[in-house]
Design a protein around this nucleic acid. Sequence first.
DNA 1: GACACATGGGAGAGCGCTCTCCGAAACCTT
DNA 2: AAGGTTTCGGAGAGCGCTCTCCCATGTGTC
Lengths: 323, 323
Amino acid sequence: MSRATVSRVVNGVRNVAPGIQEAVREAIARTGYAPNQAARSLVTRRTGAVALVLSATGGSFTARLFSDPFFGRVVDGVLPVLRERAVQPVLLVSESEPARLQLVDYLRRGGADGALVVPLDEDDPLPGMLVAAGLPTVLFGRPRPGVRCGWVDLDNAAGARLAAEHLWAAGRRRPAVVAAPESAPAARERLDGFTAALAARGAVAVPVERGRYTEESGRDAMARLWARDPGIDAVFAANDLMARGACRFLAERGVAVPEAVAVVGFDDSTAARDAAPPLTTVRQPVEEMASAMARLLLARLDAGTPRTGSRLFEPVLVVRESA
Amino acid sequence: MSRATVSRVVNGVRNVAPGIQEAVREAIARTGYAPNQAARSLVTRRTGAVALVLSATGGSFTARLFSDPFFGRVVDGVLPVLRERAVQPVLLVSESEPARLQLVDYLRRGGADGALVVPLDEDDPLPGMLVAAGLPTVLFGRPRPGVRCGWVDLDNAAGARLAAEHLWAAGRRRPAVVAAPESAPAARERLDGFTAALAARGAVAVPVERGRYTEESGRDAMARLWARDPGIDAVFAANDLMARGACRFLAERGVAVPEAVAVVGFDDSTAARDAAPPLTTVRQPVEEMASAMARLLLARLDAGTPRTGSRLFEPVLVVRESA
DNA sequence: GACACATGGGAGAGCGCTCTCCGAAACCTT
DNA sequence: AAGGTTTCGGAGAGCGCTCTCCCATGTGTC
């Protein structure tokens, strides 16, 4: 029996007589034969694997990676979609400059058919490098300008609007914002969406201070806001950790949350649930976004077209005790 | 210029005139050429990648995976060793039966040159499957009987002895044990090591109850011990979570820790540090063990021999407040 | 019963590398 | 200067698959 016939049976194509099929399968099972992926890839130009890249530009981040439940949610969303299509999910971490270069090299050489990238930092060069290498890529979060690839993202402006409307409806008329660094598009949308929604309701200029996503920086930003205007009755923070920082400052000053000042966070991370008081926050459907990301990539691989689709998700306001 | 010359330059072998080398490198840089890994693997029978497999037999464990800092420590230990050798680390998760089969298939086809496996459950069939498939494998923890592969492990008996000696030196003469399921070799060693060390000092029979590694099961085991003998003045638990459970039971009964009953855990996980009171516990050097695991695998791949070495690590007692 | 037509399965090219040969050229040595 | 020795680089086989031909059968039609 020729190799061609075996190949046909293994790949389930063309018409092979049932008897022969049976014999081939039996032989495969008996000998424990496994086709050589390298040889197969050489001709099919497919590896059957897709990379899920967790990338950061800052130093040692495996501690962050394996303690922030966010990544677990991403993985949970991605795995079932790939498994169903018999595509092997491969996790890669890019935590330093040499790691990034090695990783790009690995993928350029054909380590995987495509990449799902979760960048932690806005200035991460990795997505641009992968796209430049011609690798089908889908990002969690919109790419930097000039990088053309698929993405999934949250409608940050809509989320900010939800927060604004909630605070307004609760009678808060002197809100402030603890924003994130200006460079981040998502951060800009959250800020602009919030101020625009309030302006539409006739609110005057909203005081803004910026943090760097950490709890400590949120605390400091809140301190600056308070110094500028102790009449503030609500705070919208660009993420949950900074919202916690704001709460901590207010607690230190003996300001009651939410009675005197209402606080709304963003993300609905576990940090929001575990905060004191539990944070009212804007939720992103991470698992759904992650599985959509996987589906977008698979669709592109199937189609073979150079363009990848994108999808914007709607946020939901989760009301707890802080506002 | 022939392909052979280019190949020689890329792989840095044999004598190629410096001028030619320069020209080749320049051309590679200019055209952005990346060698096809599949073609290369086909002839070298190497992929240049090593799998780090995180495996569990129970259901959804990505939540556990991305919240237990243990895995982050393992990854931190493995990555630098592989990077230094320009081997691409590839994380694979095996969280269900179909995932396991797909993963074994992927590796059997040549997805990676070897596997570093971190099994969470003692009855995990994955290591045996990989070894049977002929894949160079190194385990975190000793393999089940009959599975011949390399491993790194902690000298559990020595750790248990440290705990026993610490409690004895503190004047505790009526200790009890919250042990793990009998099936686990590590668990058996911890129990036997503890009782043997005490017997050597003339202690009478030590009461033992078993838990299933969780805090809740530790609490229940402690309750059974207490029902058997409320005169117990010390407890040695086979892991930190069960030690916490024991503390919780004692707190519920108003029994002071460590004044009335001293508690010693095992692992020195963050659960130990965050416990109330902070746990005295036996520490495993996870990062070191993980990098040793990577080195053992690389050594085997270099040597090409079918046998892989193993290494046993010495535990250290970390004294905090619970004993 | 002769033809067209569908169907099963073999032969063989070729995917893009590596690496062993081997010939050509440069360099010593006596 | 003639031979031996080393150095450099080309030719070409072959890694283990897939997939396109193409021929040998089997099936249907008038």
